[in-house]
């Protein structure tokens, strides 16, 4: 696919303890290379929203700073336009990105070193500085996710269950898989657990009711494996176990792959009111940690990846864990609604 772009800026971040632009920076770095993942997310988002063909001949990428106080940008807007065919376009706005996560790591490092006091508030200024000869944008090859044209019935979806759809990213979760994940979460308690999650992206003839895209992501089965090493607040995924899960997916012969991995953020076994206890120190399933982002960057680098996290959610009804499914939205993972299905 031929990609043309023109971005007459160089992007930097400045880390400061002062919210005002122009204050002394405690750290400054070029973040031009972070633009690639914004373009990828916009392209994949457009394909999943059914706004693009999966293999356009060529696209034009326009990246525009949304100024807060020039040269400080409050966001970047990425617009991708199909150069041939119908000339369709898709736009996504990014108020955050990999630069923010790096700034958070840097803040932690400065606190550890003693350069910054613990608890001090820091600010990240995203600066788009106009350049006559800006550094060339290095964009990774834009690849559409693997999507199979099929009906839900052919895949084995017999009936839709509870929940609701995100209109431009409908997700279906197998009821039995959901129950297994919630049971494992309860059994593991404060220690984290997790496993491979098989699934498939399917293109239907028509969008499901309440949705605007024909592409549905089905999470169909989870595979636990004792080689994934869970402790309190951490789980390390074992590559050999993940690879074996990929072989199981092949044996099932339904066209699934290991689309992602689920993990838990711990579950209380003592107070019995995990979803109501405001003083609980276990992290919520609604939060995606910096470690979780590293899994997304390295193990499941596609911007189509969903991250299922089970655990507590303040205010959720009932006394059982909840499953939160996070999807890429504007440079970060955001929890989206989903529905169950029976097979």
């Amino acid at each position: 696919m031929h990609v043309t772009t023109d971005f007459p800026f160089e992007l930097f971040t400045e880390l400061s303890v002062d919210p005002e632009l122009g204050a002394e920076a405690i750290h400054r770095e070029s973040v031009q290379s972070d633009l690639g993942e914004l373009v990828e997310e916009t392209f994949v988002g457009g394909v999943l929203a059914d706004a693009f063909p999966t293999h356009p001949g060529g696209v034009r990428v326009d990246i525009t700073p949304v100024w807060d106080q020039e040269p400080r940008a409050r966001a970047l807007e990425v617009r991708i336009t199909e150069q041939d065919g119908e000339g369709r376009s898709f736009t996504r706005r990014f108020e955050t990105g990999r630069w923010m996560r790096r700034a958070q790591r840097k803040t932690e490092q400065l606190v550890d070193e003693g350069t910054l006091e613990e608890g001090v508030r820091t600010y990240v200024h995203l600066l788009a500085e106009g350049k006559d000869n800006p550094p060339e944008l290095s964009l990774p090859a834009l690849q559409a996710p693997t999507i199979t044209e099929q009906s839900l019935d052919e895949f084995g979806v017999r009936e839709l269950g509870d929940g609701e759809f995100c209109p431009d990213r409908p997700v279906l979760v197998n009821e039995r898989m959901l129950e297994e994940i919630l049971s494992h979460t309860e059994e593991a308690g404060a220690e984290e657990t997790g496993g491979s999650t098989l699934g498939k992206m399917i293109k239907l003839d028509q969008p499901l009711p309440g949705t605007s895209t024909r592409i549905v992501t089905v999470l169909s089965a989870s595979l636990m494996d004792a080689r994934h090493n869970g402790t309190v607040a951490r789980i390390t995924f074992d590559p050999a176990a993940l690879q074996e899960a990929a072989q199981v997916a092949q044996l099932r012969a339904k066209g699934e792959t290991v689309l992602t991995a689920f993990h838990t953020h711990g579950w209380g076994t003592e107070c019995g009111q995990c979803n109501q206890n405001t003083g609980c120190t276990l992290p919520s399933a609604t939060l995606v940690s910096l470690d979780d982002y590293q899994v997304l960057e390295c193990l499941f680098p596609s911007k189509a990846t969903l991250m299922p996290i089970a655990g507590r959610k303040l205010g959720a009804p009932g006394t059982r864990p909840v499953l939160e499914i996070h999807a890429w939205r504007g440079g970060r993972m955001v929890s989206i609604p989903w529905r169950t299905y029976g097979d």
């Binding site: 508030r121 789980i235 995924f237 991995a261 992290p283 995606v288 940690s289 470690d291």
Partner: peptide
């Protein structure tokens, strides 16, 4: 690679903000 809730409190929702 390791995932998990460690450091979740310093995640994007509560970390340094764009000024």
């Amino acid at each position: 690679v390791t995932a998990g809730g460690a450091g979740a409190s310093t995640g994007p929702s509560t970390g340094p903000s764009t000024g």
